[in-house]
Amino acid sequence: MSVVPLLVICSILVAGGFLVAFLWAVGRGQYDDLYTPATKMILDDRGTEQNDNNDNK
């Protein structure tokens, strides 16, 4: 059973790492808008003006 404390502390550290990652993401504005980025994904990439022109030909 002596391994349990070690495992518990490890698991808390790992979970704490995820918590820090989450807080960092929120702080960087990742959770500000949960709708628009999902829509942007299906739109054409930026900087593809050339492709657009080719398509129009």
Binding site: L19, F22, L23, V26, G27, G29, Y31, D32
Partner: peptide, 9 residues
């Protein structure tokens, strides 16, 4: 909203 998310986290 940001601080709410942090509190939830």
């Amino acid at each position: 909203v940001r601080s709410l998310y942090m509190r939830i986290g």
